[in-house]
Amino acid sequence: MSKAMRAPLPERILRVVVIVVALVLAVGPVLYGVVLSIRPFSAVLNAPLDLFPSPSEWDFSSFGTALADEADGGFGLGRFIRNSLLLALGTVVASLLVSVLGAYAAARLRYKGRGVVNGIILSVYLLPGIVLAVPLFVMLSRVGLTGNLVGLLIVYVSTTVPVAIYMVRNYFIALPESVEEAAIIDGCSLPVMLWRVVLPIAAPGVAATAIYVFMIAWNEYLFALLFLVQKRELWTAPLGLSQLTEISVPVTVLLAGSIIVTVPVVVLFFIFQRFLVSGLTTGAEK
């Protein structure tokens, strides 16, 4: 960067101030949650302003209490997490299976009805989830699919497919088409070519999409609330935590639970940050 571009001092100071404030606002509340989760509840009540408890005061028992089964005097978060994990992994597999195929068609193939299909996918993306929640609740209760994880899985797949197609399509478009043509000329069929040629090259992008889908399913709350609220055994982690808020569970336990639920997605996100960011914002550059 040349000297002429160097900003004047007041502007540089302003910039630093903005960055510091933004950082405090973005990360501060999460750190606050972490600090409170390792303090005893009585200490939080007595000294709410004490944000730097001495290590002797640290108390990690909230994490154990949150995770342990109800039978062992805990709140069952361990089981809720297992449910969420099953559901999120199932959603990732099913949603990617469907959307890798759709995305390849959207990226490369000219076929009749292409415009209509793309329009439908976009409009699905924009349709309010709460509006669909009413008929889905009614229809799935009618066929007995509420109160189990399969009904929820189907809904999660359909709500994640549009965004997954959009992301995977962007990664596919960026690939060199000549490799695929060469494979086809060598006698590869389309499914074989997709599996052996396209997916390996697009692996980072597909992995990033998988993580994004995982995050959506892991965080989802509305449909879990509608379908599973009567079945405590099957509660997902977000549903379980929100239900625990209703009964008087110590806030330190709730925060410990929130931290436990947060760690997997934050770790996954930061590992794949670069790919995720480019997948989400492609198209914004123009």
């Binding site: 933004a22 950082l23 973005a26 990360v27 509340p29 999460v30 606050y32 949650g33 409170l36 995050m215 892991w218 965080n219 709350y221 982690a237 977000p238 935590l241 929100s242 808020t245 806030v251 709730l254 925060l255 639970g257 929130s258 931290i259 639920v261 947060t262 997605v265 934050v266 996100f269 930061f270 940050q273």
Partner: peptide, 20 residues
């Protein structure tokens, strides 16, 4: 990367922290 934390945070965790 740190500025993205609020977006990545599960909504239930964010809401619990804010309520607190």
């Amino acid at each position: 990367a740190l500025l993205l934390v609020p977006y990545v945070l599960p909504v239930i965790a964010a809401a619990t922290i804010w309520r607190t």
